[in-house]
Computed example of a mutant assay.
Amino acid sequence: MSYGLVIFAQIAQMFVLMAVGVLLFRTGRMGTAGAKDLGSLLLYVVIPVVIVRSLWTERSEETTAVIVETFFLSLALLVLAIVVSRLVFRRDGLLAFSAAFSNAGFVGIPLVQAALGEGAVIYIVCMIGWLNALQASVGVLMITGDGASVRPRAIATNPIIISFALGLALYAVGAPEPAFVGDVLATIAGLNTPAAMIVCGSYLAQARLRDFSESRGVWAVCGVRLVVVPLLTLLLLAVLPWGHGVVGLALLIAAAAPTGANVAIYAAQYDGDYKTAVLTVCTTTILSIISLPLLISLGAAAL
Rank of each mutant, 00 (worst) to 15 (best):
S291L: 12
A136T: 07
S163Y: 07
W130Y: 08
L141K: 14
V107I: 02
V83Q: 09
V6D: 10
Q206N: 06
D92T: 08
S54N: 10
G223S: 08
T27Y: 00
A148P: 07
D271K: 09
W56N: 10
S215W: 04
D211W: 13
V150Q: 06
L38T: 00
P178T: 13
V218H: 02
R59C: 13
L191W: 00
A81W: 03
T283V: 15
L41A: 01
G272N: 05
S60I: 00
P110E: 01
V66L: 12
W219A: 11
A136N: 13
A179N: 08
R90I: 04
S98D: 03
A255G: 10
P152I: 12
L231P: 06
F212D: 03
I143D: 11
R90E: 03
D211R: 15
A169S: 13
L73D: 00
T57E: 04
V66W: 02
I124L: 14
V281Q: 01
V229I: 15
G201R: 00
E62I: 11
P293S: 07
A19Y: 08
T63L: 15
T283N: 12
N103R: 03
I109Q: 08
E214I: 00
A148W: 12
A301N: 05
Q135D: 05
A261M: 10
L235M: 12
L168S: 08
V150N: 09
L170V: 15
D183T: 05
Y123K: 15
R86A: 10
L251D: 01
M142F: 15
F180Q: 05
E118T: 10
T233R: 03
V49L: 00
L42M: 03
L294D: 10
Y270E: 04
T70E: 05
G139T: 11
N158T: 12
L75S: 03
D146K: 15
V173A: 13
A35S: 02
G245A: 12
L94T: 06
A33Q: 14
V79M: 14
D37E: 13
V247F: 04
I290V: 14
E62K: 13
L168P: 08
N158Y: 15
P176E: 06
G28I: 06
A76D: 01
V121E: 11
V83L: 14
G28P: 06
I253S: 05
M197A: 00
G117F: 07
N158L: 15
N262H: 08
K36T: 12
A172C: 11
A175N: 06
P241E: 10
Y44T: 13
